[in-house]
Design a protein around this nucleic acid. Sequence first.
DNA 1: GTGTGGTAG
DNA 2: CGTTCTACCACAC
Length: 633
Amino acid sequence: MQITAPMRDDGRIIIHFDYDCFYAAVFEREDPKLKSLPLAVQQKQIIVTCNYEARRRGLYKLQLVREARKRCPDVIIVLGEDLTRFRNASKDNYNFLRSYTWSNKVERLGFDEVFMDVTDVIDYNVGLLNYNDLVTSFFHLDRNDPTIGFHCDASRVFGRTFPKHLESCETAAVSITNTSCNDFEDLLLRLRLGSHLAEHLRHQLEEQKGYTSTVGISTNKLLSKLVGNVNKPKNQTTLLPPYSSPQGGAASNVTNFIDDHDIGKIPGIGFKMAHKIRNYVLGRPAAFDAGLVYGPTKENVKVRDVRTLDGMGPELLGRLLAGPGVPKDLGEKVWGLINGVDVTQVAKAKAVPQQISIEDSYIKLDEVSQAKKELGMLARSLVKRMRMDLTSPIEDDNLGRDLEEDDEDQVQTGSAVTSLRWMAHPKTLRLSTRPRLALNPDGTRSRTFNRISKSTNMPTFVFGFTQGVDVIADKMVEETLLPLFHKLHPEKSGWNLSLVNLCATNMSPTASDAKDGAGRDIGRMFKKQDDMLREWKVEDVDIAPSDEDENDQQKGINGLDAGKTVVGQEHTLALTSVGSEDLLDFTQETLQEDVAWDSDDDTQNLGESCRICGAVMPSYAMLAHERFHDLPD
DNA sequence: GTGTGGTAG
DNA sequence: CGTTCTACCACAC
């Protein structure tokens, strides 16, 4: 049975960014002295990432803190459990990159990766090239201003490539026909331009934002992401043509590139699917069952082994992977992936996230009183995040000026911001827990569930601005979260939770945002968040550093949080960083401006609050505001 | 609409 | 493997 590869469409140019050891880079940027030192970022008992100086000394991602200290006693370890600074830096970088696109096709993946679809920018520049002098080309970044851009040598690729050297169209033996040779030349030219744009963006990102990155350039998300990994850090790699070959021959660089990847390394093929595929390829009986003992017994299955297996194709893959809950067209999708085909679009920038979730993990959490306290902490974080990420300022039109035109001082004092409005309402509040898997007396283990959850309507009072975060959070605990918690855990005791998660989801855009969809307000939103962060007076707190890890672990529910006190009403967020107090200057950005919703005193002067969403605004604005709620979703 | 599970970093 | 703290999607019910 001969199964043909899925058809290629290489009309796009996609750039994938991956900021180098991002969490560590955020701290390094705050304190450049850290750059030359081994630096690791800790969450609970693990090192979530570390800089290259630390990696040189044998440290690595997801290493246990104890192990890391043993291996490198002088490592500087900073706490990274509060994600605010990472989230903010991530959005700032994202927003910066977004400003270079024309299509707004810019998608974040986690905090440290960004895809950009720059097809339109590339095609525009292809049209303006002088083919008689590619060496001294000018790359245009603005369709309306021909002076904006940079010089580049469009006769060659910038940076590294896969494979390392380009074959000519003829030697690559793409085809005997002229059309394929033209395809080769056309794709090569667009990739070259993509590589120069990528270099420019990397350079600007480093100069203006202080982050180095590793970048891949190709024609879809899959390939650009994978090819970036070939040269890291601080580098870029372009996947060279030819991308297709006449009869599935050996000429395709896509096939040559992707074939050498372990099947589990392909984005979209996770642990479970890789396991199923490996089992089949290795032959059902033999390879399995030694599975629980891990170590060097791991058998490698490459994409090549899967792709070239007799009878392999979308149908077989579909049967292999079938099961309850698996998408119907998974076979097609995976067959595409192992052939380097990925038709998924780079998503356009969105004004609001689909969901906001907050979670914390615990060594021991087995009493209702503890649970209630933790729910309070989580609820406070959630309400703050909702206000930060789901609201945007409403200006007082009578002042006759636009927020964007105000200078920084005015924005910081909040004088131009009279109130906030919700860009979207999460309709659902979900509480999830992960019980510790306890062995029953008879040796059987209760179900292998990871998380269990209960959800309910988001109470409307969380959308009000007249009450403070703490008041709303406490109310949420009493009226909503504790009932949910008792549904999940009816017993007074006998449970022990390793994780608690709160999620605001089922996002419903506010009418004005539903109309223009992807984010006209995005720039303003980010601006506002920067301002909001200044609300937090961040200062060191006088707590003895705990140098024993087991100390932290045994504190259980309080754990590391003991050194990180949040004093809500005073807006004081005190941080300690274990083992590195003197190296970090958290107080640099201390500012104490209030924003409109911060205090009841402020808001009471502003007018009335909307009966539907609680937004506070002058009376004259209320009529217009309430009309938004009447529009269909 | 509710709950679970898989994917990603 | 899972450790962390998320975010998104799709399915079964």
